[in-house]
Design a protein around this nucleic acid. Structure first.
Lengths: 141, 141
DNA sequence: GTTTATAATATAGATGTCTATATAAATTCA
DNA sequence: TGAATTTATATAGACATCTATATTATAAAC
Protein backbone atom coordinates (compact mmCIF):
# COMPACT_ATOMS: atom_id res chain seq x y z
CA UNK A 1 0.00 0.00 0.00
CA UNK A 2 1.78 3.12 -1.25
CA UNK A 3 1.04 6.41 0.42
CA UNK A 4 -1.23 8.57 -1.75
CA UNK A 5 0.51 11.53 -3.37
CA UNK A 6 -1.91 13.94 -1.76
CA UNK A 7 -0.70 13.03 1.71
CA UNK A 8 2.73 14.52 1.07
CA UNK A 9 3.21 18.10 2.18
CA UNK A 10 5.79 18.30 -0.62
CA UNK A 11 3.07 17.58 -3.16
CA UNK A 12 0.82 20.25 -1.68
CA UNK A 13 3.76 22.65 -1.91
CA UNK A 14 4.19 21.83 -5.59
CA UNK A 15 0.48 22.24 -6.26
CA UNK A 16 0.18 25.50 -4.32
CA UNK A 17 3.16 26.86 -6.21
CA UNK A 18 1.68 25.78 -9.52
CA UNK A 19 -1.55 27.60 -8.74
CA UNK A 20 0.33 30.74 -7.71
CA UNK A 21 2.61 30.56 -10.75
CA UNK A 22 -0.29 30.20 -13.15
CA UNK A 23 -2.05 33.26 -11.74
CA UNK A 24 1.19 35.22 -11.77
CA UNK A 25 1.82 34.33 -15.41
CA UNK A 26 -1.70 35.31 -16.32
CA UNK A 27 -1.51 38.69 -14.60
CA UNK A 28 2.07 39.59 -15.46
CA UNK A 29 1.50 38.55 -19.05
CA UNK A 30 -0.72 41.60 -19.44
CA UNK A 31 2.39 43.71 -18.86
CA UNK A 32 4.49 41.65 -21.25
CA UNK A 33 6.36 39.95 -18.39
CA UNK A 34 6.91 36.30 -17.57
CA UNK A 35 6.74 35.04 -13.99
CA UNK A 36 10.20 35.41 -12.50
CA UNK A 37 11.11 38.52 -14.44
CA UNK A 38 9.19 40.70 -12.02
CA UNK A 39 11.45 39.47 -9.21
CA UNK A 40 14.47 40.72 -11.14
CA UNK A 41 12.75 44.06 -11.54
CA UNK A 42 11.84 44.26 -7.84
CA UNK A 43 15.47 43.78 -6.92
CA UNK A 44 16.46 46.53 -9.34
CA UNK A 45 13.79 48.90 -8.04
CA UNK A 46 15.43 48.50 -4.66
CA UNK A 47 18.98 48.82 -5.99
CA UNK A 48 20.47 49.27 -9.46
CA UNK A 49 23.83 48.15 -10.72
CA UNK A 50 23.42 44.58 -9.46
CA UNK A 51 25.64 41.86 -10.90
CA UNK A 52 24.60 38.37 -11.97
CA UNK A 53 26.27 37.01 -8.86
CA UNK A 54 23.93 39.10 -6.70
CA UNK A 55 20.82 37.78 -8.39
CA UNK A 56 22.15 34.26 -8.08
CA UNK A 57 22.82 34.51 -4.36
CA UNK A 58 19.57 36.34 -3.58
CA UNK A 59 17.29 34.05 -5.57
CA UNK A 60 18.96 30.68 -5.28
CA UNK A 61 18.86 30.05 -9.02
CA UNK A 62 21.85 28.97 -11.06
CA UNK A 63 24.01 31.44 -12.92
CA UNK A 64 23.09 30.37 -16.46
CA UNK A 65 19.42 30.90 -15.62
CA UNK A 66 20.03 34.51 -14.67
CA UNK A 67 22.30 35.01 -17.66
CA UNK A 68 19.58 33.98 -20.09
CA UNK A 69 16.77 35.82 -18.32
CA UNK A 70 18.75 39.05 -18.23
CA UNK A 71 19.52 38.74 -21.93
CA UNK A 72 15.85 38.32 -22.74
CA UNK A 73 14.85 41.19 -20.50
CA UNK A 74 17.50 43.38 -22.12
CA UNK A 75 16.18 42.43 -25.56
CA UNK A 76 12.68 43.30 -24.31
CA UNK A 77 13.96 46.75 -23.37
CA UNK A 78 13.39 46.35 -19.63
CA UNK A 79 17.00 46.78 -18.57
CA UNK A 80 20.52 47.40 -19.83
CA UNK A 81 23.86 45.91 -18.88
CA UNK A 82 27.16 47.74 -18.71
CA UNK A 83 30.62 46.36 -18.14
CA UNK A 84 32.15 47.38 -14.83
CA UNK A 85 35.02 49.83 -15.26
CA UNK A 86 37.01 48.29 -12.42
CA UNK A 87 36.57 44.61 -13.28
CA UNK A 88 35.99 43.64 -16.89
CA UNK A 89 34.39 40.34 -15.96
CA UNK A 90 31.52 42.06 -14.17
CA UNK A 91 28.43 43.38 -15.91
CA UNK A 92 26.10 45.63 -13.95
CA UNK A 93 22.39 45.79 -14.57
CA UNK A 94 20.38 49.01 -14.80
CA UNK A 95 16.72 49.74 -15.42
CA UNK A 96 15.48 51.40 -18.57
CA UNK A 97 12.60 53.86 -18.45
CA UNK A 98 10.37 50.98 -19.50
CA UNK A 99 11.63 48.88 -16.61
CA UNK A 100 11.13 51.71 -14.15
CA UNK A 101 7.62 52.39 -15.37
CA UNK A 102 6.51 48.88 -14.50
CA UNK A 103 7.01 49.32 -10.76
CA UNK A 104 3.50 50.53 -10.02
CA UNK A 105 1.54 47.99 -12.06
CA UNK A 106 3.75 45.07 -11.06
CA UNK A 107 3.51 45.86 -7.37
CA UNK A 108 -0.23 46.16 -7.72
CA UNK A 109 -0.35 42.72 -9.29
CA UNK A 110 1.78 41.22 -6.55
CA UNK A 111 -0.32 42.82 -3.84
CA UNK A 112 -3.40 41.41 -5.50
CA UNK A 113 -1.78 37.97 -5.78
CA UNK A 114 -0.83 38.15 -2.11
CA UNK A 115 -4.36 39.07 -1.15
CA UNK A 116 -5.78 36.17 -3.12
CA UNK A 117 -3.18 33.75 -1.77
CA UNK A 118 -4.02 34.71 1.82
CA UNK A 119 -7.76 34.92 1.34
CA UNK A 120 -9.59 33.71 4.46
CA UNK A 121 -6.34 33.39 6.43
CA UNK A 122 -6.17 34.87 9.91
CA UNK A 123 -3.29 37.17 10.77
CA UNK A 124 -1.75 34.38 12.79
CA UNK A 125 -2.03 31.95 9.90
CA UNK A 126 -0.43 34.43 7.52
CA UNK A 127 2.68 34.95 9.59
CA UNK A 128 2.81 31.27 10.43
CA UNK A 129 2.70 30.27 6.76
CA UNK A 130 5.48 32.74 5.99
CA UNK A 131 7.57 31.36 8.82
CA UNK A 132 7.00 27.73 7.90
CA UNK A 133 7.88 28.37 4.25
CA UNK A 134 11.08 30.06 5.33
CA UNK A 135 11.85 27.10 7.56
CA UNK A 136 11.34 24.78 4.59
CA UNK A 137 13.99 26.70 2.68
CA UNK A 138 16.34 26.40 5.62
CA UNK A 139 15.64 22.69 5.83
CA UNK A 140 16.70 22.19 2.23
CA UNK A 141 19.73 24.51 2.39
CA UNK B 1 8.98 52.87 -0.55
CA UNK B 2 8.26 49.56 -2.22
CA UNK B 3 7.64 46.52 -0.07
CA UNK B 4 10.65 44.21 -0.06
CA UNK B 5 10.19 41.01 -2.03
CA UNK B 6 10.94 38.91 1.03
CA UNK B 7 7.87 40.19 2.82
CA UNK B 8 5.54 38.48 0.37
CA UNK B 9 4.32 35.05 1.36
CA UNK B 10 4.04 34.41 -2.37
CA UNK B 11 7.77 34.92 -2.71
CA UNK B 12 8.49 32.54 0.14
CA UNK B 13 6.23 30.02 -1.57
CA UNK B 14 8.24 30.36 -4.76
CA UNK B 15 11.53 30.01 -2.92
CA UNK B 16 10.41 27.05 -0.84
CA UNK B 17 9.19 25.33 -3.98
CA UNK B 18 12.47 26.05 -5.75
CA UNK B 19 14.44 24.48 -2.89
CA UNK B 20 12.19 21.43 -2.88
CA UNK B 21 12.31 21.13 -6.66
CA UNK B 22 16.09 21.30 -6.74
CA UNK B 23 16.44 18.52 -4.17
CA UNK B 24 13.86 16.43 -5.97
CA UNK B 25 15.69 16.84 -9.28
CA UNK B 26 18.96 15.91 -7.66
CA UNK B 27 17.59 12.77 -6.03
CA UNK B 28 15.31 11.60 -8.83
CA UNK B 29 18.05 12.21 -11.36
CA UNK B 30 19.89 9.24 -9.91
CA UNK B 31 17.00 7.08 -11.14
CA UNK B 32 16.95 8.74 -14.53
CA UNK B 33 13.79 10.69 -13.72
CA UNK B 34 12.99 14.39 -13.87
CA UNK B 35 10.93 16.10 -11.18
CA UNK B 36 7.29 15.76 -12.14
CA UNK B 37 7.67 12.38 -13.82
CA UNK B 38 7.55 10.60 -10.47
CA UNK B 39 4.10 12.07 -9.88
CA UNK B 40 2.89 10.46 -13.08
CA UNK B 41 4.35 7.18 -11.91
CA UNK B 42 2.73 7.48 -8.46
CA UNK B 43 -0.65 7.90 -10.07
CA UNK B 44 -0.02 4.83 -12.22
CA UNK B 45 1.15 2.77 -9.26
CA UNK B 46 -2.23 3.50 -7.71
CA UNK B 47 -4.18 2.84 -10.92
CA UNK B 48 -3.18 1.91 -14.45
CA UNK B 49 -4.98 2.70 -17.68
CA UNK B 50 -5.30 6.41 -16.88
CA UNK B 51 -6.03 8.84 -19.71
CA UNK B 52 -4.41 12.21 -20.31
CA UNK B 53 -7.59 13.87 -19.11
CA UNK B 54 -7.20 12.15 -15.73
CA UNK B 55 -3.67 13.42 -15.28
CA UNK B 56 -4.75 16.89 -16.28
CA UNK B 57 -7.61 17.05 -13.79
CA UNK B 58 -5.63 15.49 -10.95
CA UNK B 59 -2.51 17.61 -11.36
CA UNK B 60 -3.87 20.93 -12.59
CA UNK B 61 -1.44 21.09 -15.49
CA UNK B 62 -2.44 21.78 -19.07
CA UNK B 63 -3.08 18.99 -21.54
CA UNK B 64 -0.10 19.66 -23.83
CA UNK B 65 2.21 19.41 -20.83
CA UNK B 66 1.01 15.91 -20.05
CA UNK B 67 1.07 14.96 -23.71
CA UNK B 68 4.76 15.82 -24.01
CA UNK B 69 5.78 14.34 -20.66
CA UNK B 70 4.05 11.04 -21.43
CA UNK B 71 5.77 10.88 -24.80
CA UNK B 72 9.16 11.37 -23.18
CA UNK B 73 8.42 8.82 -20.48
CA UNK B 74 7.29 6.35 -23.12
CA UNK B 75 10.50 6.93 -25.05
CA UNK B 76 12.41 6.37 -21.81
CA UNK B 77 10.69 3.00 -21.45
CA UNK B 78 8.81 3.88 -18.27
CA UNK B 79 5.31 3.42 -19.65
CA UNK B 80 3.35 2.49 -22.73
CA UNK B 81 0.20 3.93 -24.26
CA UNK B 82 -2.55 1.98 -25.97
CA UNK B 83 -5.56 3.24 -27.83
CA UNK B 84 -8.86 2.56 -26.11
CA UNK B 85 -10.90 -0.07 -27.92
CA UNK B 86 -14.19 1.70 -27.16
CA UNK B 87 -13.17 5.28 -27.98
CA UNK B 88 -10.45 5.85 -30.55
CA UNK B 89 -9.66 9.31 -29.21
CA UNK B 90 -8.58 7.94 -25.85
CA UNK B 91 -5.13 6.58 -25.13
CA UNK B 92 -4.63 4.69 -21.88
CA UNK B 93 -1.34 4.64 -20.03
CA UNK B 94 0.24 1.52 -18.57
CA UNK B 95 3.46 0.88 -16.67
CA UNK B 96 6.31 -1.09 -18.12
CA UNK B 97 8.39 -3.39 -15.93
CA UNK B 98 10.90 -0.55 -15.70
CA UNK B 99 8.21 1.83 -14.51
CA UNK B 100 6.92 -0.66 -11.96
CA UNK B 101 10.39 -1.33 -10.63
CA UNK B 102 10.86 2.33 -9.68
CA UNK B 103 8.11 2.32 -7.07
CA UNK B 104 10.32 1.39 -4.15
CA UNK B 105 13.24 3.73 -4.82
CA UNK B 106 11.01 6.65 -5.79
CA UNK B 107 8.85 6.34 -2.70
CA UNK B 108 11.97 6.18 -0.60
CA UNK B 109 13.20 9.39 -2.16
CA UNK B 110 9.88 11.11 -1.57
CA UNK B 111 9.75 9.96 2.02
CA UNK B 112 13.24 11.31 2.50
CA UNK B 113 12.31 14.60 0.85
CA UNK B 114 9.26 14.83 3.10
CA UNK B 115 11.37 14.21 6.16
CA UNK B 116 13.82 16.91 5.15
CA UNK B 117 11.06 19.36 4.27
CA UNK B 118 9.44 18.89 7.67
CA UNK B 119 12.64 18.78 9.68
CA UNK B 120 12.17 20.46 13.08
CA UNK B 121 8.42 20.86 12.51
CA UNK B 122 6.05 19.84 15.28
CA UNK B 123 3.15 17.53 14.44
CA UNK B 124 0.81 20.51 14.67
CA UNK B 125 2.95 22.55 12.32
CA UNK B 126 3.07 19.72 9.81
CA UNK B 127 -0.66 19.35 9.53
CA UNK B 128 -1.12 23.09 9.62
CA UNK B 129 1.30 23.61 6.73
CA UNK B 130 -0.51 20.94 4.73
CA UNK B 131 -3.86 22.57 5.44
CA UNK B 132 -2.66 26.08 4.61
CA UNK B 133 -1.09 24.94 1.34
CA UNK B 134 -4.33 23.26 0.38
CA UNK B 135 -6.19 26.44 1.24
CA UNK B 136 -3.83 28.39 -1.02
CA UNK B 137 -4.80 26.13 -3.91
CA UNK B 138 -8.45 26.69 -3.14
CA UNK B 139 -7.88 30.44 -3.01
CA UNK B 140 -6.43 30.42 -6.51
CA UNK B 141 -8.98 28.01 -7.98
C1' DG C 1 56.84 38.40 -16.08
C1' DT C 2 54.80 34.31 -17.77
C1' DT C 3 52.09 30.49 -16.52
C1' DT C 4 48.39 28.75 -13.71
C1' DA C 5 44.35 29.14 -11.11
C1' DT C 6 40.18 31.50 -10.01
C1' DA C 7 36.07 34.15 -10.96
C1' DA C 8 32.20 36.27 -13.92
C1' DT C 9 29.54 35.57 -17.71
C1' DA C 10 27.96 33.02 -22.02
C1' DT C 11 26.59 29.03 -24.75
C1' DA C 12 24.64 24.36 -25.70
C1' DG C 13 21.34 21.12 -25.00
C1' DA C 14 17.66 19.21 -22.27
C1' DT C 15 13.07 19.29 -19.63
C1' DG C 16 8.57 20.95 -17.66
C1' DT C 17 5.59 24.31 -18.45
C1' DC C 18 2.56 27.48 -20.98
C1' DT C 19 -0.74 29.34 -25.06
C1' DA C 20 -2.39 28.73 -29.59
C1' DT C 21 -3.51 25.70 -32.99
C1' DA C 22 -4.01 21.28 -35.59
C1' DT C 23 -5.70 16.61 -36.05
C1' DA C 24 -8.68 12.88 -35.45
C1' DA C 25 -12.53 10.50 -33.49
C1' DA C 26 -17.12 10.59 -31.45
C1' DT C 27 -21.49 12.89 -30.79
C1' DT C 28 -25.26 15.91 -31.94
C1' DC C 29 -28.64 17.64 -34.78
C1' DA C 30 -31.13 19.12 -38.56
C1' DT D 1 -27.65 10.23 -43.17
C1' DG D 2 -24.46 14.07 -43.40
C1' DA D 3 -22.74 18.35 -41.66
C1' DA D 4 -21.53 20.77 -37.46
C1' DT D 5 -19.97 20.49 -32.84
C1' DT D 6 -17.54 18.57 -29.16
C1' DT D 7 -13.81 15.91 -27.18
C1' DA D 8 -9.04 13.65 -26.79
C1' DT D 9 -4.60 14.04 -28.15
C1' DA D 10 -0.60 16.11 -30.82
C1' DT D 11 2.33 19.81 -32.61
C1' DA D 12 4.62 24.40 -32.71
C1' DG D 13 6.89 27.86 -30.50
C1' DA D 14 8.17 30.25 -26.32
C1' DC D 15 10.26 30.68 -21.56
C1' DA D 16 12.44 29.49 -16.92
C1' DT D 17 15.11 26.24 -15.34
C1' DC D 18 18.88 22.84 -14.96
C1' DT D 19 23.93 20.64 -15.83
C1' DA D 20 28.06 20.76 -18.40
C1' DT D 21 31.18 23.37 -20.74
C1' DA D 22 33.35 27.45 -23.01
C1' DT D 23 35.06 32.14 -22.90
C1' DT D 24 37.15 35.99 -20.97
C1' DA D 25 39.27 38.72 -17.40
C1' DT D 26 41.55 39.05 -12.97
C1' DA D 27 44.54 37.18 -9.41
C1' DA D 28 48.18 34.11 -7.71
C1' DA D 29 52.35 31.68 -7.92
C1' DC D 30 56.54 30.38 -9.46
Amino acid sequence: MTLPIRSFVGFQLVQAHRAHHKKAEEQLGKLGLRAGQEIILMMLWAEEGLTQARFVEQLGVEQPTISVVLQRMEKAGLLSRHQDSQDGRVWRVYLTAKGQALEEPVMQIWQHLEKQLLNSFTEAEQSLLRRLLMQVQTNFA
